[in-house]
Amino acid sequence: MIAFEHVGKRYGGRFDALAGLDFRVERGEMVFLTGHSGAGKSSLLKLIMLLERPSRGRILVAGHDIGRLHTSQVPYYRRQIGVVFQDHQLLTDRNIFHNVALPLMIQGVPPREQARRVRAALDKVGLLHREKALPIELSGGEQQRVGIARAVVNKPALLLADEPTGNLDPALSADIMRLFEDFNRIGTTVMIASHDLALIARLHHRTLELSDGRLIADKDAR
């Protein structure tokens, strides 16, 4: 699903945020990405999302060299990836339903179909009854679940999450992780950046550890 080949990212000509990354993530895998703050977790996810392009090396996603995608094709590429953010990035001026419907609206899905799929996604995260609420009326954990519903509403093959539990207490964090495991179980490739080592240890998935932009460990805990 994802293959990094000698990937490096350099900022401002001298600072190497990532260097010599070489790894593969298979289709349907669930992988954690760990490391201290500034180790390059977010940079790595940004490369996969094509928010940034690598300075060196090649990144293959689903067999395609994404470095060769033209800027005009980037949006269509991103539609195939679900992304969950630490601060969930919900739009505060519209309700939960419309927040989750956003990816479908962007892709031009007919309204009736949108409604069906949004409700299905909200149902999966257990928030179907709150579809009319505004994001601000939800708790932090609920907001994050809305963020996840939005990420999965168009059934992406790849789900990325950047510190999805960063602002949540341990019980809620475990809930959120269980949700990711559910999606992984139906075939979605999941990659989660997190520094919550205790939680990761309990979940028994493959873990990639970054330090100073280099991959220092690749443990399969299954």
């Binding site: 999302m49 928010l51 005009s72 949006p75 269509y76 590429y77 991103r78 539609r79 992304v83 990035q89 739009l91 001026d93 956003l102 990816p103 962007i106 892709q107 939005r150």
Partner: peptide, 15 residues
């Protein structure tokens, strides 16, 4: 923020 979010989830420039 809205522009950044919709761009991240695959909105084209035209959108």
């Amino acid at each position: 923020q809205e522009i950044e979010v919709v761009t991240l989830i695959g909105a084209t420039h035209a959108f």
